[in-house]
Design a protein around this nucleic acid. Structure first.
Lengths: 126, 126
DNA sequence: TATACCGGTTTCCTAAAGTATACCGCTTTC
DNA sequence: GAAAGCGGTATACTTTAGGAAACCGGTATA
């Protein structure tokens, strides 16, 4: 990387291509974990505190128990959320965002900000 | 919103639920436009300068012409990218990121940063 | 004259994502 | 004793995303 960040004037394609690839890989990794209609929404819901299964489902319109169950499992595997079972009867289950999950906050914030602006733009032009 | 941002101690579920919904909508809007395996990667590629069709395809591993064509059309519709045809023979076509597309930069930056950290984490624990 | 590049399109296909609906055992409330 | 809430699972289905391969007319190159 001996090129200045903003000097793209005469970058040959095969050079800018390498720069580009370096950006692409991590983004792909992030996308792999976060993609899908529900995962980020679930994480956002958990951002507001521990939640129980049905509670999450109620907060996210359109989310079926099957999808919620599946997505929560994947979030657990990736250590973004944790599941806590309490020995009541019937059992009480709580889901919580993990410290690692919290590292997504800045990303979610940007997503929110962009989404909000985009929403305004769309509404404005109708 | 008469509640303090950080006072979640005794928020009843139906209140935090409303807060949550307010966050969810814009995020869904953003996701609708940006979701999928390729769109963000294409935008990132265009971040490094105008590109021609095959050039983009070469830079993004695994991207087929069919998908690229489809995604570029959607990006155009959403005014994130623009298409320029030059009257050479055969035609030369260039794709460029729009000013509106550039507003995605902070989001992409966060995605990159999180992805890079995640990548390290994954590699470290193997 | 054959090959390759350009900017795509077309067709066929599979795997994954997502939806709908019903159901389970257990418990509290009416 | 019926209904509803809990945390899910099971089954069946539709829809979408995405991939593989072939192909198009036009042009330049060897």
């Amino acid at each position: 990387m001996e090129l200045m960040e903003n000097d793209k004037r005469k970058l040959p394609a095969h050079i800018s291509g390498h720069e580009c690839t370096a950006r692409l890989l991590p983004v792909k990794d992030a996308l792999d974990i976060l993609s899908g209609k529900w995962k980020l929404q679930i994480i956002i819901s958990l951002t507001f505190g521990k939640k129980r299964f049905k509670q999450i489902q109620r907060e996210i319109p359109g989310l079926t128990p099957k999808m919620l169950s599946k997505e929560l499992k994947e979030l657990e595997i990736n250590e973004l959320a944790s599941r806590h079972v309490y020995d009541t009867s019937p059992v009480t289950v709580e889901y919580e965002i993990t410290p690692y999950g919290k590292t997504l906050k800045p990303l979610i914030e940007e997503l929110y900000k962009w989404g909000a602006k985009h929403r305004k733009r769309i509404i404005a032009r109708k």
